[in-house]
């Protein structure tokens, strides 16, 4: 009994460390410019400035930005889940010449940081005539070596009896993947989808570099308008950040129940 209380106490302590900055963000979002700039231990504003919300939305075309962000993130997430499921399965379960080499090539693409591939990728996208289009925002991110690796591990963890039995029943690879193996690793696919969504939704530099007009801009670009050369509008920046983060918190809360339930038999295997 005492052990349980200690456990909850421990978790609550940890939780306060992870949530404090959030509370701070929300508090600051509704302070006046001056109060936000004043360092103090006071978490919440002395007077809630609800009109900050209005000011935030007026500072940039957030409507368009949100629409673009959701559209881009949605397409990217769907594609990443599909491509990593397909490639992960091929690497884990199919027997073909060049499998090891192909997998090495996939892993090689993560060895160089994004900051380095930015210019070459920009050249390619530009060459394809995609500057300032959705294609530039979406296509390069439709697959991801990390997630292929993750899904491969999950497929490798499936007991091979499943596959043998399917084979005896005359079930081919595509059918097995779609109807049996895929659903069995659903928690991993949900995880991949969540991370892919976050990655796309939180990206700033790439969208800024490959787009020129407000028509194609995304929410993270919207956050930068509050930092000028002469200062940051702290309260509005935090207000905008809170608004931008909200959908991802909801998404996570919805997705997280898939992580733990029904994960039997999907242990990650190296």
């Amino acid at each position: 009994m005492i052990r349980r209380y200690v456990m909850y106490l421990f978790l609550l302590c940890g939780a306060s460390i992870t949530t404090f900055p959030f509370a701070w963000m929300i508090g600051t979002a509704f302070k006046t410019y001056k109060e936000a700039a004043t360092p103090s231990l006071q978490l919440f504003p002395s007077e809630w400035q609800w009109h900050n919300l209005v000011e935030t939305f007026q500072a940039a075309p957030f409507g368009t930005y949100f629409k673009n962000s959701f559209f881009v993130a949605f397409v990217v997430t769907t594609s990443v889940v599909l491509t990593s499921m397909m490639a992960g399965y091929a690497f884990a379960r199919l027997d073909f010449p060049g499998r090891k080499q192909a997998f090495a090539v996939v892993l090689a693409t993560v060895m160089v940081p994004f900051e380095v591939t930015l210019i070459p990728n920009f050249l390619i996208v530009n060459r394809l005539g995609w500057y300032d289009t959705y294609a530039a925002l979406i296509v390069p991110w439709c697959t991801n070596a990390f997630y292929i690796f993750l899904v491969r591990q999950a497929f490798m963890g499936l007991p091979s009896d499943y596959f043998d039995a399917a084979k005896i029943d005359g079930c081919g690879h595509l059918r097995f993947l779609v109807w049996i193996a895929g659903p069995l690793v659903k928690p991993i696919l949900v995880t991949v989808g969540l991370f892919a969504f976050l990655g796309s939704y939180n990206s700033l530099v790439w969208p800024l570099v490959v787009t020129g007009t407000d028509r194609m801009r995304v929410v993270q670009v919207g956050l930068t308008v509050f930092s000028g050369a002469e200062g940051v509008q702290f309260n509005l920046l935090m207000c905008a950040s809170a608004i931008v983060i909200a959908p991802t918190v909801v998404l996570y809360f919805v997705a997280q129940k898939y992580f733990s339930e029904g994960l039997v038999g999907t242990g990650l295997k190296g």
Partner: peptide, 13 residues
Amino acid sequence: PSLGLLGVFGLLP
């Protein structure tokens, strides 16, 4: 799909 995309936007860069 994966190798095509990774080839163009991963390996080529």
